[in-house]
Nucleic acid binder design. Structure first.
Lengths: 345, 345
DNA sequence: TTGTACGCGTTATCAT
DNA sequence: ATGATAACGCGTACAA
């Protein structure tokens, strides 16, 4: 129970409430000895601030919300959370994670936002905002920073990965290896709206077209919603089935994530497809496991990205100016064992 | 800005503040029409509650803290977070994650706790509490539930995995396969205190001894602190080096986690060790990737576990009684391709 | 069913 | 440097 209040400490130390408040918060204009006395009393009484009372009085909640479009237990989102946590906690902010799966949830989340004095900043992850949402965001008076979010409108700052570049390089690699038919394999989406990583499919197609892949030579396998499948395994099987059944079977694929790519590779091999001899596979993320299973992939560092985003939020919350509000991180193509020259026809 | 307050809504709707409070919270004893009017006004004004004010007045923070000993971006912790989030958010609670790496952090965390009216419940994950901490915990007036926490003292409720049983089964399997020299390989620890999964090493040794493995026949590779290594890869190499250099090399190993096991398998194969022919490997967790790479492992479901824990917390917060405060989850040994008969000597 | 008035624990302003 | 005192926004007896 939050029994012991600041007032109790004041009584114990024989000073006024205000002095306790100042002393414990480390403000200046407090005599060294009185401060020591107060700190002593506070320790004895095991006092600690009731943050909601502080919030109410000061207007600062010392909390920042971070919104995800996926699940908290995915590689990307959990890394983002950890990164943001690192820098925010060090600055005495609490981190409040939120997930949003449907348009409806997204709407209600944003509807409630404006009048909301419940957080001091918001970080939005992997969500490609619609117009209405962007507008609401723009009207917010607290800092908002987008992380891996396609549409920058409305954000005060952002940290993005250069997806277009990543896809250009991936397509370029496959082309150099002699592949003539390539494809992008999406992952089943967790919710009912497109989030950022799916924009990579667009980037892939664009890059492919620019590099001379036309018509059937550049395909895109859309896996729909995750809820369409019983389990992850079923989704994987389904993807493989479609891949193998394609009348123009690609000899190389880019997959939306390492996790999905690794499962695909396993399943493809299970069906006798030799990788990389018969099919090249490029993942995305470069997780620990990717290196363990020797998966060629595109490296990104969500922890760094979200540290950056959180730092931006921190600066913004201080009311300071950002010299570089929008940063673009460069992905790196990591060559490993799942890519090889195209098979001879 | 938290501009619009409950009072503004009251004025807009032409009623008193208390009526707005009651109407918006769905309490009874409010006329249907007035409620509609209030809701209308609230929507128009984009009102939403200032939670810290509500908290201050009601004494409930509508927040629960969840403490991890590891990183938020690990398979286990992130799953736990997701599971707890699922059930807590549905009940209008915010989830506030916290990580604790050192004894010092753990201490300050607990020192501050008692007088802390900042959360309504605490879930402690994978931390084997010391006596002092248990005592502090026991003195808390808010519900505390342990998740995967070795020492139950002080907790109002808990959800544990039956680690002893898991280790018994793993050892039993290896014995049946004819292995005479087995070992447990720990993972480098993130912090400076032992957390629960490391207790599995003890359980492993105990099970081994009970099943007749003596002396060098049951070994334990302690990998120390994670900070001792530059990267995860270095830790893996180091583990493999020690494994291969052992004068009595084991023919089968149990590894603390799938992630580490998968990396070990890759590295071992890299050194020409055939798996499972020359060495059997059993992981722990059964992540998605484990099935993809065909790793024999011990299945657990942290999402389920933490849903259970969160539900317990919820009930406790309501002041209700738990019919089964402490639950023990049963792990399942999943046989896959990294275990086989012991090699002929 | 609705309104009044006070309290929650802290910060901030203004004196002293 | 320290002490009163008025907010902060809402919940809740109690009264009407």
């Amino acid at each position: 129970m939050s029994r012991v209040t600041l007032h109790d400490v004041a009584v114990e130390a024989g000073v006024s409430d205000s002095t306790v408040s100042r002393a414990l918060r480390g403000l200046d204009k407090v005599d060294g000895r009185t401060r020591a006395r107060v700190q002593d009393a506070a320790r004895r009484l095991r006092f600690s601030f009731a943050r909601n009372a502080s919030s109410l009085a000061s207007g600062k909640t010392m909390r920042v919300s971070i919104v995800f479009a996926n699940a908290l237990n995915t590689w990307f989102d959990s890394s983002v959370l950890q990164g943001a946590y690192d820098v925010l906690v060090r600055n005495k902010y609490d981190v409040v994670p939120n997930t949003v799966r449907t348009h409806e949830q997204l709407n209600t989340f944003f509807e409630r936002l404006p009048a909301d004095g419940n957080v001091d900043a918001i970080i939005v992850t992997s969500i490609n905002l619609g117009q209405v949402e962007s507008e609401i965001l723009g009207q917010l008076t607290i800092p908002t920073v987008g992380l891996d979010s396609g549409n920058l409108t409305g954000f005060d700052a952002s940290v993005l990965l250069d997806d277009k570049r990543a896809m250009r390089e991936a397509v370029g690699l496959l082309k150099q290896l002699g592949h003539r038919r390539i494809a992008f394999v999406e992952q089943p989406a967790p919710g009912d709206f497109h989030f950022t990583s799916q924009l990579r499919a667009d980037d892939f197609m664009e890059a492919a077209h620019q590099q001379g892949f036309v018509g059937e030579d550049a395909q895109r396998f859309d896996m729909g919603k995750f809820s369409d499948y019983y389990t992850q395994d079923v989704a994987v099987s389904s993807a493989v089935a479609r891949l193998l059944a394609a009348e123009a079977r690609p000899t190389a694929i880019c997959v939306e994530s390492d996790d999905f790519a690794i499962s695909l590779v396993a399943e493809l091999r299970h069906f006798g497809i030799r990788i990389p001899e018969e099919m090249s596979v490029i993942g995305f993320d470069d997780t620990n496991v990717a290196s363990a299973v020797n998966l060629t992939t595109i490296h990104q560092n969500p922890i760094e990205m979200s540290r950056d985003a959180a730092t931006k939020a921190l600066i913004l919350m201080r009311g300071e100016h950002l010299q570089e509000p929008h940063s673009l991180m460069t992905p790196a193509l990591v060559l490993r064992g799942t890519t090889a020259r195209a098979p001879q026809q």
